[in-house]
Design a protein around this nucleic acid. Structure first.
Length: 1108
RNA sequence: AGAUCCGUAGCUCAGCCUGGUUAGAGCACUACACUGAUAAUGUAGGGGUCAGCAGUUCAAAUCUGCUCGGGUCUACCA
């Protein structure tokens, strides 16, 4: 223990942090903070793994601050919080990075570079920036276990994934199916949604669109159409922006509840009369209102207005199963019952005709509804993006210009022309819309049927929705809104990725797909490897027979051949799994469950998480996959509370991006301002879930305002404590023995502890931080310390002084503890500065201490109320002084305060001394008597009166506004008042109005709310003398300071005699001497030398000599 | 295109859930004061169409609907 509090010359946050960091590492403070809670209730936290192949940005600092502060807070609250770090190492961004580094493209893999070498490079590259990340983690003070992180490419990790896949497989939740996926013919590969969401992939394109006419067949279910038309020709109109899909058309989808009409009109291209069906709401798109019921006979080719007439109206449901002729009859599907009208829920009347051309091969919606109706599938475009051989004159033509052919002719146009000629096009036009493009080839994407493995998440949808309701979402609307909607509209999880670097799907199948096995562990695989070798013989799996498999990645797993029960060879399904599965399974995989740590999870000590937090962009990413797997594997939530933080924008509200060059480098920010101020700013400036406009000026503000103020307060405390040798060695003085102001700040402190605790418990760190800020600034620094300054440097080291020291010490100690979760460095530094001397707490670090507990017995709301009154009154008096230009140093006789009741008077009397000294007046008069001395103002209490008066409120308010002094006196005396409003008698109660003392005629007054203060501005000779004396004290103190005297030096003073000051110096000689620590104060007529000073515009000399 | 959040002083944000009549704070700006916490502090001042429109109500920043602008997510769908 040291005997003196360290004093500092200036606050250097970055330096403090470097020192503290060293201390933490030296004493293993983080490990210790977990150790000290051994045996305590665990608080389970999951670290969402970052990918270390990209550099950390400032947005990582905010989510990590949030995670860190919750974990630190819970630790201080007595929980044990283990924080295992982790790295996300698979996935497309890694592959892309590697391809860039190696200067290759995907096509080169397996050709220019072997898959084994490629994956080896991925393995190295993936942790490329790990050092940078570790450095940021350290510098920002994020406590997480980096020594034993989980890594998603690790065999153990993958083994756990396999276990969970097998578990899903056994539950029948894993299946293979064709699905429609974005596909790039130019690149010859399927695209993930991630790739599709690369910037710039969605482009505005102008496509030829066609409203095609599908000729209905007359049958029992369609007879009503033909009857209404009185013709053998009825057409369904369907719009498409991709005419090249028309040869593959197999159905027409309508909305069951949409109103459709049968219209008789003329085809604008062939001028033939036609009867067409479309949605009623969309008529206006194709037919002009003037044409309705116009004369068909009068129509001439080229007329702008085409006549039309509604023949019948019906709902979509009436059209179900009506058959039609194939539009472009090149090829028919091998299976299914095509060319029918079917019902789908995705049909809208936003655009098109309300009838959707349905080609199950080229649209996800189409495929789904097509499957439901069994209309088959027809894929007349191959993987290169050209028509297959069986599409007549279009065979072999590319549907888009995938080969950069300069002579490319748009197939869509030719199809449109053909339909026009055949009287099968109702309208052809260019249409501009956005369409996705392959980010690598810049060519339009097709939606194309591809084989894929799925998890049947939809089977557990209801359970997921149900369990989601038990999760505490911050903010709540993300859980009910964005996440809730997502769950409601869930589709099966497409697991397949045709990639190289990732977790392989552990499924082996026979060639015909009739037999398959899903492997759930390395041991099982090794057993199967040996079995296959025994059964199949030869070289099968030769290289894996001795040691078993050493790397679960491609290409090694692909070499393995297993054997089916019937003795057929089985090969691995070539897909890798979605990386989101990697991260979603981290609760189990990080512990290598169930192969190790089975107890830990089964006993609930590592699952589910009490708390997770990530960016809001993870809602449908990590938050979803964690939840989905938690529910599917364990029928449990994976986390109890989740905080989703918003984005970090630049100071202009723009998203940060490398392209715009507005990215904030977190290292520079921390170097310059320190992590603590940065963390504090990030947390208190906006709620974590609001997007934050990041401006470094704000960090500077936090630095000055909060840390600067606390630092000043500490330095002030240290300076005087060292003089008085206060080390908190005296017994704790009971609160009731401390002066009013001490009890007050302790009361406010405990209120603050109560509030901050509940904010933190509620995951509202922003509110907690703001409450702390206002306490430090408004209460501690600008009121307590300001009013008590004198107590610290005046008088003996006795009861009052010790009380002041103990009080201020306690405030500093507890405030630092409250702040510790948010700003861990500064607070640890301050804590140690204090605790090293006092030894109040055992701990070496603030992060090993217990979070303060609010003492409700110390909270005195009356006391807090009257101190607020004192602050308000002081502020009013100071503003009055300002108005009449009388400085505070000039004492005044009294202030007058009207008090409406006894309670207020009693309250004021208790803080009278504080007010008097703060505003430098001799006394306070309380005005209780009314008698016209005080001018009153009456205002209706709208809240209470409004509910009673309702519509009469306005009139009544006008009446009350016109009350005379006598009226006011009457209602005050009687407690009620009778009004005649519009001939009706109404009674209003005293509680229905607010009466405030507005003015005291003849006095200088000021108001704030109901509070009124008047100031007596008469300056008597005596007051003048006292004022002058204080002026003199002030000047001599300045001389002392300028001369560099110690606080305790005694002096002798000689003053040149000035008439107007003479009486002050004589009458207040003692007072002045005490204040300036002078042993003598003498007046002389003439003074040689000394210092010239000025009091009230008079200049004269003063000689101050230090006693040796 | 849909969902969702946001829009209050020059800037950053409270207030909105639960409607009540002069809409607040900090920063910045201006002036003054203070000077044993001093690169601190106090007081005063200017600064607002509460995005817009409509509705409900005696009363709307606050509740409802629509519009506009910004962000995010999902989708790209005929």
């Amino acid at each position: 223990m040291s005997s003196k509090y360290q004093e500092y010359n200036q606050l250097n946050l970055p330096q403090i942090e470097k020192d503290i960091l060293q201390q933490w590492e030296l004493h293993q403070a983080f490990e210790k903070s977990v150790e000290v809670r051994d045996g305590a209730t665990p608080f389970v936290f999951y670290e969402g793994p970052p990918s270390a192949n990209g550099l950390p940005g400032i947005h990582h600092v905010i989510s990590r601050t949030l995670k860190d502060l919750v974990c630190r807070y819970k630790t201080m609250k007595g929980f044990q919080v283990k924080r295992k770090g982790g790295w996300d190492t698979h996935g497309l961004p890694v592959e892309l990075g590697v391809e860039k580094t190696l200067g290759i493209t995907k096509e080169d893999i397996g050709k220019k570079i072997s898959v084994a070498d490629y994956n080896e490079t991925c393995r190295k590259e993936v942790l490329k920036y790990k050092d940078k990340w570790d450095d940021l983690t350290r510098k920002m003070g994020y406590w997480v276990d980096l020594k034993d992180p989980y890594i998603t490419f690790d065999n153990k990790y993958i083994e756990s994934l396999w276990w969970s896949l097998q578990t899903l497989y056994k539950k029948g939740l894993l299946y293979k199916s064709v699905s429609i996926q974005p596909y790039s013919p130019a690149a010859g590969t399927g695209l993930s949604s991630h790739e599709l969401n690369q910037p710039g992939t969605y482009k505005d394109v102008k496509d030829t669109t066609v409203v095609a006419m599908f000729k209905a067949k007359n049958a029992a279910n369609s007879k009503f159409l033909f009857d209404a038309a009185g013709s053998e020709e009825v057409f369904f109109l369907a719009w498409t922006t991709t005419p090249w899909t028309l040869p593959s058309n197999l159905g027409l989808t309508v909305g069951a509840n949409i109103q459709y009409v049968l219209v008789s009109t003329l085809n604008q291209y062939t001028h033939l009369p036609v009867n067409v069906v479309m949605a009623k709401d969309l008529l206006g798109k194709y037919l002009k209102a003037e044409g309705e019921n116009a004369d068909f006979a009068a129509y001439q080719e080229g007329d702008k207005v085409i006549p039309w007439k509604i023949l019948a109206s019906f709902k979509g449901s009436q059209l179900e199963n009506i058959r039609y002729e194939q539009l472009l009859p090149y090829t028919q599907p091998e299976e299914g019952d095509p060319f029918r009208v079917i019902i789908g829920d995705f049909v809208t009347t936003e655009d098109g005709t309300g009838i959707v051309h349905t080609a199950p091969a080229f649209g996800a919606d189409d495929n789904r509804v097509g499957k439901k109706y069994g209309i088959g599938i027809l894929t007349l475009v191959d993987r290169e993006g050209k028509f297959t051989d069986n599409v007549g004159e279009f065979s072999g033509r590319y549907v888009k210009n995938y080969k950069d052919d300069p002579d490319y002719k748009d197939v869509d146009v030719d199809i449109a022309v053909k339909l026009k000629k055949e009287n099968r096009a109702f309208k052809v036009e260019k249409y501009e819309h956005t369409y996705p493009h392959c980010w690598r080839t810049d060519k339009p994407v097709l939606y194309y049927p591809l084989d894929a493995w799925f998890i049947k998440t939809t089977a557990l949808k209801d359970r997921m929705v149900e369990l989601n309701k038990t999760i505490n979402w911050k903010p709540a609307f993300t859980g009910t809104g964005r996440f809730g909607n997502w769950l409601e509209n869930m589709v099966d999880w497409n697991l397949s990725r045709s990639r190289y670097w990732g977790t392989p799907l552990p499924i082996w199948r026979t060639e015909d797909g009739s037999e398959e096995i899903c492997i759930g562990s390395i041991e099982e695989l090794n057993t199967e490897i040996r079995k296959a070798n025994e059964v199949l013989g030869g070289d099968v799996n030769k290289s894996y027979l001795h040691e078993g498999i050493l790397d679960l990645h491609k290409p090694y797993v692909d070499d393995i051949v297993l054997v089916s029960p019937s003795g057929k060879p089985m090969r691995r399904e070539p897909d890798l799994i979605d990386v989101w599965f990697d991260s979603g399974a981290m609760p189990y995989a990080q512990w290598h469950y169930p192969f190790e740590n089975k107890e830990l999870l089964d006993k609930g000590e590592a699952f589910p998480a009490d708390f997770i937090a990530e960016g809001v962009d993870q809602t449908r990413g990590w938050f979803y996959t964690l939840h989905a797997l938690g529910v599917m594997l364990f029928d449990n939530v994976a986390y109890k509370t989740v905080v989703s933080n918003g984005l970090v924008l630049d100071k202009n509200g723009q998203k940060m991006s490398k392209r715009l060059g507005n990215v904030v480098n977190p290292f520079e920010t921390i170097d310059q301002y320190g992590a603590d101020a940065t963390r504090w700013y990030l947390i208190t400036n906006a709620s974590p879930w609001d997007s934050l406009k990041f401006d470094v000026k704000g960090i500077g503000e936090a630095q000055r305002k909060l840390f600067g103020t606390l630092y000043n307060t500490y330095n002030f405390f240290a300076m005087y404590s060292n003089l008085d040798k206060f080390t908190f060695s005296e017994a704790y003085i009971p609160l009731q023995e401390r002066p009013e102001i001490d009890r007050w700040i302790i009361s406010v402190l405990n209120s603050l502890i109560r509030d901050v605790t509940s904010y933190f418990d509620d995951y509202e760190p922003t509110q907690a931080g703001r409450a702390i800020e206002s306490f430090v600034d408004e209460h501690l620094s600008n009121w307590y310390v300001r009013l008590c300054r004198r107590r610290f440097w005046k008088g003996d080291y006795g009861h009052d002084k010790i009380s002041a020291y103990q009080t201020l010490y306690e405030c500093l100690e507890k405030i630092t503890q409250l702040m510790a979760p948010v700003s861990p460095f500064f607070t640890d530094w301050m804590f140690n500065n204090l605790n090293r001397v006092s030894g109040r707490l055992e701990a070496k670090s603030i992060h090993h201490t217990d979070f303060p507990v609010s003492d409700s017995a110390a909270i005195d709301s009356d006391l807090e109320e009257r101190m607020q009154l004192a602050q308000d009154i002081s502020s009013l008096v100071l503003s009055l002084r300002k108005k009449v230009n009388i400085k505070v140093r000039q004492p005044l006789q009294k202030i007058l305060i009207p008090v409406p009741n006894n309670h207020m008077k009693e309250q004021l009397e208790k803080v009278e001394d504080l007010i008097k000294s703060e505003v430098n007046v001799k006394g306070i008069d309380y005005l209780t008597e009314t008698g016209g001395f005080i001018k009153k103002k009456i205002k209706p209490n709208f809240k209470s009166l409004g509910s009673k008066m309702g519509a009469k409120m306005k009139t009544v308010a006008a009446f009350i506004g016109a009350f005379t002094d006598t009226d006011i006196a009457t209602i005050e005396r009687d407690g009620h008042f009778n009004l005649a409003v519009d001939g009706e008698q109404l009674q209003i109660q005293l509680s229905d109005v607010e009466i405030i003392s507005e003015d005291i005629p003849g006095w200088t007054v000021a108001n704030k709310g109901a509070l009124t203060v008047a100031l007596d501005i008469t300056i008597t000779d005596q007051l003048q003398d006292e004022g002058n004396a204080r002026e003199l004290v002030n000047r001599i103190q300045k001389i002392r300071k300028d001369s560099g005297f110690e606080l305790t030096d005694r002096i002798d003073v000689t003053v040149e005699s000035v008439d107007s000051l003479k009486s002050a110096i004589i009458n207040y000689n003692n007072y002045i001497c005490t204040e300036i620590l002078a042993d003598s104060l003498d007046l002389v007529e003439q003074l040689q030398g000394g210092t010239e000073i000025e009091v009230n515009d008079l200049k004269f000399n003063v000689l101050v000599n230090k006693k040796s």
